[in-house]
Design a protein around this nucleic acid. Structure first.
Length: 519
RNA sequence: UCCUCCUUAGCUCAGUUGGUUAGAGCAUCUGACUGUUAAUCAGAGGGUCGUUGGUUCAAGUCCAACAGGGGGAGCCA
């Protein structure tokens, strides 16, 4: 990042000295890499950058939205760059009463003035206004958000305005940082960012119920086959199509040419899932690596998760601290035993500084069977033994009670996993791995892929997956097949983990869930 | 989809074993004050009690269905 700025520095300096008085131009030379990129094309300075200045009479222009207007004298102005507001001071008698009346919650303002050390206690500097322009009025009687605490449920109904609150400001800046870090990580590792299709024809993957994509009429007049089913030969694509449930299969095609690829895009599941960790439309990251086995896969996943968390910790500390405080306040209302043992920041630091626990499925079953929890018959679902699918209460026990850190579970029974996972030599398990995170559950699911054509087709036959539909997928095993592996990470679950938000609907801008597609 | 809880003013909530005109805090509006920090002080306006139906002399309160929402579960990321 620094290098790009350096290259254009002289140009920026000319701009800055032209439009800003000397003191500020002087400041820009102290740390050019952070400040210059925020002197905007429209000559405003972002509040986040403004607050870094030593106030001594510099003249600046800020633009933002009113959070509160106290005492007919102090405007808390927020421009979305940080949760900290700039306090605009309106000196008595300098402005029309008619203008001051229009400074209401969420009105948008352009304010020019000089910054001075604040006389008040709550902030470092004041912006003494010399000119105030109302860019957009906000009718206080109609604006739904008040300068007070609102419930997350209420704000979900006002999703179009909730970005203007501190909580959602922080959440979505952190979301941005994590998304940026995803690309940064893979770019630094030489992965190719691959855009796999949103509309797909294959329905063989079995990752979940799919949304159908069609241009045929829905009023019953669509062309039919002799058996009464819809004839998709006359549909837009000449076949039946759906929204993608995963880019993995296409990703494997990329990996077996570029070596390493990743996808980062929207994914759709038409499951009727009504939980705090499911969405019908969510964003998934799916790296796929050739010449890579299960252990390499686990190593990459762990390094990746730590990398993007570290990036957010280093670049969005203030927002994370705000979210940590928010979470602490929220948990004060819970009984002692329901509260988190670690604060949000401590939890993230813990994840950065400790290796994830790695155990096999078989070891996990043993731990669960031997646990006091099981002996006291406290599991709702009984530990029936090897071969059973783990319920979320079992996963939660392992992660939150037994190990108290993220756990990578590997080598699951073949019977409970997908067809493309590599069959182990024991004849009963596959080289699969899941990463379980405290509070969220499964955050990553991945595997080494079955690269041996005969084994793969045999498994497909067992699971009644027609080979014809996946001829292109099987070609990778026919022409220069290689050991390869990959995983999928649900981006919103990652954002939940980092921000501490307990409902997934609060970490995506406009959540799509069963029965709900507002905005 | 299943279990469970909830729905009263713009928001958060109170409302007794069913019984006159349904309350509070905050927000909003009006006024006062002017170095405030979710400012403060005084006053005002604001409600078909989620919808529909039922029980009853009488329903915010009891019953049923439906709708919306929360929490948990399944499916998963």
């Amino acid at each position: 990042m620094g290098k790009i700025i350096d290259r254009t520095l002289p140009e920026y300096e000319r701009m800055v000295t032209k439009m800003l008085p000397d003191p500020l131009a002087d400041f820009t030379t102290h740390s050019p890499s952070v400040s210059l990129r925020f002197i905007m094309f429209n000559q405003r300075i972002k509040v986040s950058e403004l607050l870094k200045l030593d106030p001594n009479g510099q003249s600046v222009t800020v633009m933002g939205w009113v959070r509160t207007f106290r005492n007919n004298q102090f405007i808390a102005l927020n421009d979305g760059s940080t949760n900290t507001n700039i306090q605009v001071v309106v000196e008595l008698g300098k402005f029309d009463d008619a203008l001051l009346k229009r400074i209401t919650t969420s009105a948008s303002l352009k304010v020019t003035g000089v910054i001075e050390p604040s006389l008040g206690k709550g902030q470092k500097m004041d912006l003494k206004a010399t000119a105030i322009e109302i860019l957009g009025d906000s009718d206080a009687e109609k604006y739904p958000l008040q300068p007070k605490k609102h419930s997350l449920e209420f704000l979900r109904e006002k999703a179009h305005l909730r970005f203007r609150t501190n909580t959602f400001g922080a959440v979505f800046r952190v979301r941005h940082a994590l998304a940026f870090a995803v690309h940064k990580f893979f770019n630094e590792k030489g992965f190719v960012y691959m855009h796999t299709p949103i509309i797909t024809a294959s329905d063989a993957e079995g990752a979940g119920e799919m949304f159908r994509v069609t241009t045929l009429p829905m009023d019953g007049t669509a062309p039919k086959n002799e058996d009464g089913s819809i004839n998709h030969k006359e549909d837009f694509f000449g076949r039946s199509t759906n929204l993608t449930v995963s880019g993995q299969l296409e990703g494997e095609l990329g990996a077996t040419a570029f070596g390493e690829i990743y996808t980062f895009g929207p994914t759709f599941r038409a499951e009727n899932s009504n939980t705090a960790r499911h969405l019908a439309e969510f964003w998934m990251i799916e790296p796929e690596m050739a010449f890579c086995d299960l252990e390499d896969n686990m190593n990459l996943a762990e390094e990746f998760i730590q990398y993007i968390i570290r990036y957010a910790m280093e670049n969005n500390r203030e927002d994370l601290e705000f979210l940590a405080t928010r979470l602490e306040e929220e948990e004060k209302q819970l009984p002692q035993d329901k509260r988190s043992e670690l604060g949000l920041i401590e939890k993230l630091e813990f994840v950065l500084n400790n290796q994830f626990e790695r155990i096999t499925y078989t070891e996990a079953i043993d731990i669960l069977r031997e646990s006091n929890h099981n002996k006291k018959k406290k599991f709702q679902y009984e530990i029936t033994g090897w071969g059973m699918d783990l319920q979320s209460e079992h996963e939660r026990y392992l992660v939150e009670k037994h190990f108290k850190k993220p756990v990578i579970l590997s080598n699951y029974p073949a019977a409970i996993k997908a067809f493309y996972m590599r069959q182990n030599e024991d004849g009963k398990t596959v080289a699969a791995m899941d990463i379980l995170a405290p509070g969220i559950g499964e955050i990553v699911g991945g595997s080494q892929r079955e690269e041996r054509l005969d084994r793969l087709t045999a498994r497909m036959k067992e699971m009644q997956i027609p080979e014809e539909e996946l001829w292109w997928y099987l070609d990778t095993r026919r022409f220069g097949t290689v050991p390869h592996a990959g995983f999928g990470l649900g981006f919103e679950r990652m954002v939940q983990f980092v921000t501490g938000m307990s409902n997934i609907r609060d970490v995506i801008a406009f959540p799509r869930t069963p029965g709900s597609a507002e905005f």
